[in-house]
């Protein structure tokens, strides 16, 4: 370890010292990084293919008749259009949102504004998480058993909407809580100092401030229920005709068209399934994009004002 002087010694130090296993380690590093890039491609290829397949074939299947006529036949044939299913889907989504939004939003109000993290709120959050993990087919069976059979509503819009509402509830509950918790405390305190009571602070101020976040949660929940099939098969069944009746009248919906007509190997059935898929993909992607952008804003730390 003498001072570096002779050219040889200098050369020695010029070489960056490397342990024997170094080359294989660098190789492993490269392989690992390539593999990670590889799995991304493997995972996203089907997604890209799904978009390509259903947008391409869906657009090819667009026709005035298919969009405006009712479905003809059912399990065996498959033809006509899907206007009944499109209308039915919108009807069910609207109805279930109408039921669940007040419950979920004001439940979220309790979690964020009143609970002080007490045991009730802990149980509620825990069970909400459990509920979000219940397979939708199980919810469907329960809706069928309780609403369709026991209450005697038959396959109906109401039975389906309530089942969907239960499915959407945990998402709306939790995002509402999240959104309300992000409203700065100073806003509540300012209103409190003016002598407002809690009820009016929440209704007039906090909820208004949290509205974008709450809407995000509602949209997300809606996009989940738009794509649901299993619970609806058990509660709404299917109908070739549009309906506005709440009880005793089956309802059609888009996902059923995909499920059934994808299994019927005629080109007309497949065209309907493609068109229904296209509509579903577009609706779900649009809602998801909108709500994810909103959600990202929601989880980003709040910028200090001024």
């Amino acid at each position: 370890m003498a001072q570096v002087e002779t050219p040889q010694e200098k050369r020695k130090l010029v070489e960056i010292r490397g342990p024997r296993n170094f080359r294989s380690r660098v190789l492993t590093d490269k392989i690992a990084k390539t593999a990670c890039l590889g799995v991304i491609l493997v995972a996203f290829y089907p997604f890209a293919d799904i978009l390509y397949l259903f947008i391409l074939n869906g657009v090819r299947s667009i026709s005035w008749a298919r969009l405006t006529e009712n479905t003809v036949g059912g399990n065996s044939l498959g033809g006509g259009g899907l206007s009944n299913a499109l209308e039915g889907s919108l009807f069910l989504i609207g109805l279930s949102a109408l039921i669940v939004v007040p419950i979920g939003v004001f439940g979220g109000v309790y979690l964020a504004e009143f609970s002080n993290n007490n045991w009730i709120s802990k149980v509620s959050r825990f069970t909400a998480d459990i509920l979000a993990g219940v397979p939708s087919i199980v919810l469907g069976y329960v809706g069928f058993s309780l609403l369709v059979l026991y209450f005697g509503w038959g396959f109906s819009a109401m039975a389906a909407a309530i089942t969907l509402a239960v499915l959407m509830f945990p998402y709306i509950l939790r995002t509402t809580e999240l959104a309300l918790r992000r409203v700065p405390e100073s806003i509540r305190e300012g209103a409190l100092a003016l002598g407002s009571n809690k009820t009016s602070i929440i209704n007039r101020l906090t909820l208004r401030f949290a509205l974008p976040g709450i809407l995000t949660g509602v949209l997300l929940a809606i996009s989940i229920s738009v794509g649901e099939t299993a619970p609806l098969i058990y509660t709404a069944s299917f109908s070739n005709y549009a309906t506005t009746q709440l009880f005793h009248s089956p309802v059609g919906y888009l996902t059923y068209m995909v499920f059934v007509f994808s299994q019927i190997p005629t080109s007309e059935a497949h065209a309907l399934a493609y068109l229904a898929s296209l509509l579903l993909v577009l609706i779900v992607l649009a809602i998801n994009l909108a709500s994810r952008v909103g959600l990202r804003r929601l989880t980003k730390p709040l910028e200090s004002e001024g």
Binding site: V14, G18, P19, R20, F22, R23
Partner: peptide, 19 residues
Amino acid sequence: MEAQQERMSKEKSETLERS
């Protein structure tokens, strides 16, 4: 330490003789 250093300079020779 010196022994180590020496051993390693021998090992390294494989690696980066790019002076």
